[in-house]
Design a protein around this nucleic acid. Sequence first.
RNA 1: GCGAGCGUAGUGUAGUGGUUAUCACCGAGCGUUGCCAACGCUUGAACCCGGGUUCGAGUCCCGGCGCUCGCACCA
Length: 556
Amino acid sequence: MSDAEEGRLERLTGMLKRRGIILPAFEIHGGAKGLYDFGPVGGRLRNKVNQAWLNHWISLGNIVEISCPTVTPYAVLEASGHVGEFSDFLTDCNSCEEASRADTMLESHHPNPDSLSKSDLQQLLNSINPQCPACGASDWSPIVAQNLMFNTTIGAGNSGRPGFLRPETAQGMFTSFPALYRHNRERLPFGAVQVGKGYRNEISPRQGMIRLREFNMAELEYFIDPEIEPEHDFSDWSSIEMNLISESDGQVTMTINDAIGKNVVRHATVGFFMAKTFDFLTNIGIDSSKLRFRQHESDEMAHYASDCWDVEILGSYGWVECVGIAHRGCYDLESHEKATGKTLRARREFAQPKIVEIDGWTTNGATAGPAFRALAGAVKNAVEQLPTSCQFPTQISLENGESVTVDMEHVKRVQRTESISGEWYIPHVVEPAFGIDRIIWHLLDHAYHESAKGGDEYVTLKLSKTVAPVDYCVFPLFEKDGMGQLAKEIHKSLCSKSAIVSIYDASGSIGRRYARADEIGVPICITVDHQSLQDNTVTLRDRDSGQQSRVLISEL
RNA sequence: GCGAGCGUAGUGUAGUGGUUAUCACCGAGCGUUGCCAACGCUUGAACCCGGGUUCGAGUCCCGGCGCUCGCACCA
């Protein structure tokens, strides 16, 4: 990062803290790494982003919103693979005892240290022996694997059982698949969305909002039948060229439709969600020229995924992954099925039912049991192998070499016709997963504009109207002659409208008040002046152009 | 935390140690209707988990987990 960029970043984070958008949490107690507050302005911003996200997906028509607990029993995350796999490789500085991630320290010495095994990573660490980012020493303890989940105990004392705070919202959507399936009238495809908190006990949180220990995430799990070719309409994006970094072709620019046609994007539903994600991000104010899709390398992708694209956004910390769109196959549902023995499947009917004839023998438990005692199980197995034409009594030899006589009273005929009308299969899942905090960070980063105004530095936060935390500021030119009162009335009537936030501000010069409003990105300022008292009009000032226009109060 | 009771399809349930695990509603498909839970045919779905006793466990025993009710506590 250049000095100029570093200066901008410092001024931006300073402004965010000063104006109550994003600030370090628990600061009066010394703060806590990786934990941030959304302040009085940021809280509203976060909510609007979450809401815009939900609306964006729910409008597809086959998506439902659910909300699952963050406290999660051990067994759930064991089944999902998180207990075993979800860990980072950690090494301690022997000089200052600061823990660091071995892979991140070696990033400049290996193309993808994240993919290395523990022993390879240890070898690389030994040969490079990097400096400790905290104290500068080069003396490291052996690498240990550290699980990234916050563990907790569900219930008190001896009756408590182990659990974790969820590291992602997804598992709750997989475990409630049967309810979702039935709710959706047993028809695929459908999806479930959830916004909420996730927790990862990061070893070294840094870069502000980029790596957090408690974070806001928003995930869609979209369930599809792998045997049905997906049909998506890409006409909305036919003229939009997207920046793609593909595993095989490197950096390319093409429409999403072409990318699917050329198999750069391997699955149409993944491509569809990439396009929808592009829309979402640009609608809320991400600069499309600072947005790219990067395909995971084979060694970077989770072993079960068949294709995965990250959305990376360019900001003060470089290109940062903010969204992951993964084709997860049947891995998740299958894992929970194996762990629980419950059915997590969807059904497809055959065009024609299959007819299966069953005709043979089995034992009659009520007579064969007492007759053969300990051998009853083996006799049953042997009898079920007998041909339909078998005559009783008959002599049969068992697996253990013994020979028994089976009478007619020990057996019964099994004869029926089964008609099999369909089959059960495990749906595949395509999952777009959004890091809301990272997206909000980049919204702010992209919206933050510095300019010179009369020799002073002037800040405008050019947030999109869909996410701007404050919709209107109402200013009386002066708080006298009834202007203050009229302005308060306007403010009050705006506040009474649902989903509208207005701020009343009468302190300081009018220019200073515009500047305050611009700094938190208020799109429109309303000013009550002398003329307002006579003709019931006010001036509307547009944030980005500074243009003013007069409108009737009744038309606001 | 204490005491009592209970865990069978999505829901509510039946099930003398041997059934292809009952019934109803329900869901899906097709048809007849045609506007606020209609009808017919086809079809789908379950014994909480783990041990034990037994030739054989939904059923008996033990442990775990969960739920309900009362008491205690509580945002």
